[in-house]
Write a protein that binds this DNA or RNA. Structure first.
Lengths: 343, 343
DNA sequence: CAATCATTTGACAGCGCTGCCAATTGGTGA
DNA sequence: TCACCAATTGGCAGCGCTGTCAAATGATTG
């Protein structure tokens, strides 16, 4: 399909310089006389020379490419707008530094370090790392890599860029306390994710700080993206059976929150009059919800962006200490939260 | 960070065979004696040899990598779950054939053919191709490439895998006709997308087929993902001013539909009692809407999967005729559509 | 047992570029 | 004018692999 493949050598020949000089021009090396640069550039343009990046990478050992690993089992997560935004941020951070993305949806039998070992990338960004296979992750610690989620509470050798779920949960609780709520249900998220435990801790700490008692029945783990049926079931068999009843719900994520919203509406309750509901992530779904959902915003785009820059830094400087960055979360208040019903 | 980089040559030396033989083993070439294969494989495992894919690609001219281009200006689209699913399908199709994805969010000054010209990929998949720069797209026609959207009605040299928006619009209209609706508003989507025109044509054809008159005021172009404000404005200044008033709305996409749903609710109308609303794409948003949204489903995952397989076929066989595939869309009926109000 | 042919293996150039280091050029001051 | 130094430029090996084609091996047959 291609007519002629123009190489460095041909450009050099036509321009009457050495390959090395052409190489310098292509790579914007400063040590080329301006006259020479112009002449060579002219030939490059004339011949429509396109450098072969593979050859360049092979010779230099740098690929200017980063692998982004997405855990496959979490296909579902992938449809969640949050991920798309994260990827957008990663892309921006990398593109600004002339890096490309090699995207891989991880399959059961794939090795997490393969892309790097095959010399195809300079480093890896691991999103939603599986928490159930720490051994497989182990190899990543010896490689330039950044996780966008804490992989386990005790793991502290990994480079991590994550949102401050502890602080966010605390902020949410303050918001609800201020609205007069005293019985607040918390759906933490799954047991195996660090963020669930962080939320749980914040819940206890925030209550303690206000001198309020903690009712353990009000804190429950749940699967992310809980479906309507499960939520209905939990409402009927648990939450609404409690005495005193919770007057507010902190959901693990926006989808769970919206399903909760819809189930409550279906049962004849009014949000925020009867119950307040808070979501997490502040995805576009929050705006579309009815009523619009109060949600703790992860800076998803910025998180991706930061992860990218962090990785590039790790690649360049190989720090000995792990880099761990917490990003602020901000509570976006909409109409799903209001004053606690005066019982 | 790496201790030893094991090369083919070292494996060959240790195994006591030539490099070429090791290469054959690595690439599963059939013409290797079983005994030799086992011995070599043993050494490969022992030394933990990892082939250098760059070197392999450089020598062979095949990268086993496909570029996926995402138009940057459509950042917004990217947060739309549809895209994530599409990407998931692309990934599946490619992974099954041992291809990887080089993902690029296109920036204003990027060349669409660059990745290929730099020999980094064997072909390209172009999602949401910009329709306003046909010249830049032109180069893609001489390269193994597949578009996931019709780039322009008249362009017929490109390989395209798209959903059958014409048929889908017709199906939606049938559904609404059957429910007794006779005044149906159509928000086609933007002028510059082929799908808008296809929907418009289906609208006219479906009416004609039933012997119904077409009221041009009921068909309007709109931006995808119309925001609540715009929708409110259009309702107040246009749709609700018409006589007779439309009793049903076909929205260009799920987000527009949901915003419409919320605006109508905010104005005190009941859906589906007062108005029926249909969305497009059947994203996860449809389920979360209140009431759940009737929506025409693009097989987003399957579309990506098909696009991937199509591209691999194009790469392998360089067909002379462009490949154009239409994927069926299915109407998923939920609670946002009902019988037309008996006026 | 030699001739024949299929199967298996090997030698080596070369893919297109960059790193290293040497060679050349041009300008300066004595 | 010549030594001297900085700024440019060039030569060439080699990155790790595969393609081509030749060589060696082994099986089969008359």
């Amino acid at each position: 399909m291609q007519k002629h493949i123009v190489t460095l050598e041909q450009v050099a020949k036509v321009a009457g310089v050495s390959m090395k000089t052409v190489s310098r021009v292509v790579n914007n090396s400063p040590q080329v006389a301006e006259k020479t640069r112009d002449r060579v550039q002219q030939v490059i343009d004339d011949l429509n020379y396109q450098p072969n990046r593979l050859a360049s990478s092979l010779a230099s050992g740098r690929t200017n490419t980063v692998g982004v690993l997405v855990h496959h089992a979490v296909q579902q997560i992938f449809a969640y707008p949050f991920f798309s935004e994260l990827l957008g941020g990663i892309s921006k951070g990398l593109n600004e530094n002339r890096y490309d993305i090699l995207l891989r949806f991880m399959d059961g039998n794939m090795s997490y370090t393969e892309l790097f070992e095959h010399r195809r990338v300079d480093g890896l960004i691991v999103t939603n790392a599986p928490i159930d296979k720490p051994e497989e992750m182990q190899g990543l610690l010896d490689i330039p890599s950044v996780f966008t989620s804490r992989i386990a509470l005790r793991n502290n050798r990994s480079n991590v860029v994550d949102s401050d779920f502890y602080g966010a949960a605390w902020t949410v609780l303050d918001h609800l306390f201020d609205l007069g709520h005293r019985h607040i249900a918390l759906m933490t998220g799954p047991e195996h994710l660090a963020l669930s435990h962080l939320r749980g801790r914040a819940y206890a700490d925030a209550h303690r700080a206000r001198g309020l008692p903690v009712n353990d029945a009000l804190v429950r783990a749940n699967a992310l993206f809980a479906n309507p049926h499960t939520i209905r079931h939990d409402l009927e068999t648990h939450w609404l059976q409690l005495a005193p009843r919770p007057t507010a719900f902190i959901a693990s994520d926006d989808i769970t929150a919206i399903n909760l919203l819809n189930q409550l509406a279906g049962m004849g309750y009014n949000v925020p009059h009867d119950f307040s509901v808070v979501g997490f992530d502040n995805t576009m779904l929050s705006d579309l919800a009815n009523p619009p959902l109060t949600s703790a915003a992860q800076q998803s785009f910025h998180k991706g962006y930061t992860a990218a820059l962090t990785l590039l830094d790790v690649i360049a400087h190989e720090p000995t200490e792990p880099v761990q960055i917490d990003l602020d979360m901000e509570l976006v208040v909409r109409q799903s939260t209001g004053r606690a019903p005066s019982s």
